[in-house]
Design a protein around this nucleic acid. Structure first.
Lengths: 259, 259
DNA sequence: CGTTCTATTGACATCATTCAACGCCGGTGG
DNA sequence: CCACCGGCGTTGAATGATGTCAATAGAACG
């Protein structure tokens, strides 16, 4: 579910591939091409499905979503990107971009032209390893996502999504407990394959259970453990009884227990 | 949904990577290592999730399924493999196989050790293109599968699955209309994220509609067009009326029309 | 300040799962 | 040869988790 974040000790933290291209491993000049960095704003697209594939990108700052469109017009959000993520690895198959990518907020990307990329692949074994690993990671992530969507309940999927986001933020040295969602509920729902109403209901339910605290795009994970419980096994019978015990002053019919 | 089938004009049809390794493009000896080909039988595994990743494989004959196991014990079938398919590209991430692979029938694979593979990657630009393309194709396929599972109805998913299989068989020069399913309904259901009962019901429904003909593992696609209709838009109101018209000799209560 | 997008909530409909029973087939052992 | 058995497949009935439809309201945006 998490995009693979390129990291290497000898390499710039924000732009690993540029580091490889211009780093100690290759024999190329160390002067960076300034024009390779570009800024985009919310709603703008980096490329659209069907565009010719001529470059890879690394997201340096901001966030983005990728999505495919069917012939019937509806869209499927296929992933979210965060700083450090490699973009465009799925273009080699048909040499056209199989999906579109638009930014969720003001963002910056580093462009790596295909010729530049191919040269680096030929010259650097490190580069080859890096790319194989990154593509491989994307494959594993997609498998995991498939497993989630087809085997987990809506609540479990949402819990997993939040935990995954949390992990990604922590990986980047940010808080994994308090962060804000750069994507809309619509995007989340689309990505997880459910209705936005379901997302909304589940979020308020989790908030009532004091597992999370949401206010617009701002979200706080109050208990990672309880969130993990949501993901594992949803029955949570013990906690249900606790809940009933707490409400002991209220009048509860006995049949509620047998239900 | 379809695994990428390696093909190259200068290369052996059954084992493209071996062709690259030993072909004109590289400077290696042309003597093939005989022990790299091995035969497996139904139910046997090539590797299991967690095994160290030390080789890629190409399926030469037969068929196989890959699947992941969750900590709770249930499994998710993630793909089916047919002759020509490359196996194991998702192992580069953690250098462990992220999924298990078992054969559905007597099969034969060609093994490409990792060191051999890395050498070929360094020496041959053709090889690099081939691998990038293949991994890229797998990514696209998984995206397509995700789109199917989260956006399509059970009937549409099954229709898409059958059409996909049909296309794969035709690609290999076999009949795309009459073939037999090497996997059980259980595997199909698991792969498509639905219950086996649903698969069973839909198959009989399609058979009643004369769209397909199934008998155990043997299946005939009677009308690819109608199957495509299933995939596009399921209402199919016009055909429902036609069906009723054809049965005009029978006694149909009026309320059947308002239902 | 209105329009549009996003989000929340309720009532209702429905598709797909679940539970259950049964039939079929191939293998295995008496 | 027959009886038994386990895996696979089919079918019916009931339940339930999500989607759909609809109304509302605040925030963002120009």
């Amino acid at each position: 579910m998490t995009m693979h974040r390129l990291q290497d000790n000898n390499v710039c933290q924000n732009c690993a591939l540029c580091g490889v291209c211009f780093g100690s491993d290759s024999h190329m000049p160390t002067s960076p091409t300034q024009k390779s960095h570009k800024v985009y704003h919310r709603g703008e697209s980096l490329f659209s499905m069907g565009d010719t594939f001529d470059a890879l990108f690394i997201l340096r700052a901001g966030s983005a979503k990728s999505y495919l469109s069917t012939s019937e017009g509806d869209e499927q959000v296929s992933g979210f990107y965060h700083p450090g993520d490699l973009i465009g690895l799925d273009g080699f198959d048909s040499m056209k971009n199989p999906q579109s990518l638009t930014f969720l907020e003001t963002s910056s990307v580093c462009r790596i032209g295909l010729t530049e990329f191919n040269r680096a692949m030929g010259e650097s074994a490190t580069m080859r390893q890096l790319i194989l690993k990154s593509m491989s990671h994307s494959l594993v992530d997609e498998q995991q996502l498939m497993l989630s969507v087809s085997k987990l309940s809506a609540e479990q999927r949402l819990a997993k999504f939040l935990l995954d986001l949390s992990g990604r933020f922590e990986q980047r040295g940010l808080s994994g407990k308090v962060f804000n969602l750069s994507m809309t509920r619509i995007d989340i729902a689309n990505f997880l394959g459910m209705a936005i109403e379901t997302i909304s209901r589940l979020l308020t339910k989790m908030q009532q259970q004091r597992i999370i605290d949401v206010n617009r795009r701002q979200i706080s994970l109050l208990s990672l453990d309880r969130l993990h419980d949501c993901l594992k096994n949803e029955p949570e019978i013990a906690w249900t009884f606790l809940s009933i015990a707490n409400k002991s002053s209220e009048n509860i019919p006995m049949r509620a227990l047998s239900a």
